[in-house]
C-alpha cells in the first residue's frame, strides 16, 4: 500500500496514510472524488508572463464625452463617429435617430387613410373623413360620444371596484349595487 501511494498520489481517498510522505498541502477535496496526480520529478520552468505594451488612449464619443483606457493602439486620441450615444439600438426612444418619413404634402397620410390599417390611421383619418361629408362627420361624432360614454362608465366601474375593495366584509348589500350596470353593458 505504501509503495502504491507513493507512486500515484491519491489525494483524497487515503485514509491509512501512515508511511507515505505527502506534501504539506492537505487534500481539500471532498471524500467522494478521487483524482490521480502522477508525480512529476522534473523541474518546471517558471516563465515570465508576456504582456503586450499598452498605451493610454482617450476615447471621445460622438456627444463629446471622453474616457481613457489602456490599449495596444499607439494613437493618443480616438474620436468615434458612431457609438452608443448616436446609435438607435441604444437609444430606442430618440426621435432624432429614428428615420422619420418626411410627409409635407400629406400624400403618405392620405394613402394610409385609405388603405392603412387601424393602428396606422388614428388621428388624421377622422379629420379627413369629416372634411368629406357631413353625414360621416355626424356619425363619427356620435361614435365618439358613445365611446366616451362607455369609457366613462368603465372608469366608474373601476373606481367602484377600487373603493369597494376592502369593504366587502362589513356591509355587502349597498356596495354591490354599482356593480350591476356593468353586467348590462
Amino acid at each position: 500500500m505504501s509503495m502504491h501511494t507513493s507512486l500515484r498520489r491519491t489525494a483524497a481517498t487515503i485514509t491509512n496514510s501512515t508511511t507515505t510522505i505527502l506534501p504539506t498541502r492537505l487534500p481539500t477535496q471532498s471524500s467522494s472524488t478521487t483524482f490521480i496526480c502522477s508525480q512529476c520529478r522534473h523541474a518546471t520552468l517558471l516563465r515570465r508572463p508576456k504582456r503586450p505594451y499598452t498605451f493610454t488612449q482617450l476615447i471621445t464619443l460622438s456627444d463629446g464625452s471622453t474616457f481613457t483606457h489602456r490599449t495596444t493602439s499607439p494613437a493618443p486620441i480616438y474620436r468615434s463617429t458612431r457609438d452608443t450615444r448616436n446609435s438607435l439600438l441604444w437609444n430606442p426612444s430618440s426621435s432624432k435617430l429614428m428615420n422619420v418619413e418626411e410627409d409635407e404634402a400629406g400624400r403618405l397620410a392620405a394613402f394610409r387613410a385609405r388603405f392603412g390599417r387601424s393602428y396606422d390611421a388614428s388621428a388624421p383619418v377622422a379629420d379627413e373623413e369629416t372634411a368629406k361629408d357631413p353625414a360621416a362627420a355626424k356619425k363619427a361624432e356620435a361614435d365618439a360620444k358613445a365611446q366616451a360614454k362607455e369609457d366613462q362608465e368603465e372608469e366608474d366601474n373601476l373606481l367602484d371596484l377600487i373603493s369597494a375593495f376592502g369593504q366587502n366584509e362589513a356591509p355587502p348589500p349597498p356596495e354591490k349595487k354599482p356593480f350591476k350596470p356593468s353586467g348590462k353593458k
Binding site: I59, H69, R70, T71, S80, D83, N86, S87, L89
Partner: peptide, 24 residues
C-alpha cells in the same frame, strides 16, 4: 480584471454600435 473591463468598455461603447444592422 483591468484588461477585461477595458475590453468590455471598448466593445460596448465603440465597436458594437458600429456594426452594420446588428440587432444585439
Amino acid at each position: 480584471g483591468e484588461n477585461m473591463h477595458h475590453f468590455f468598455g471598448k466593445l460596448v461603447d465603440v465597436v458594437l454600435p458600429r456594426i452594420k444592422d446588428w440587432e444585439g
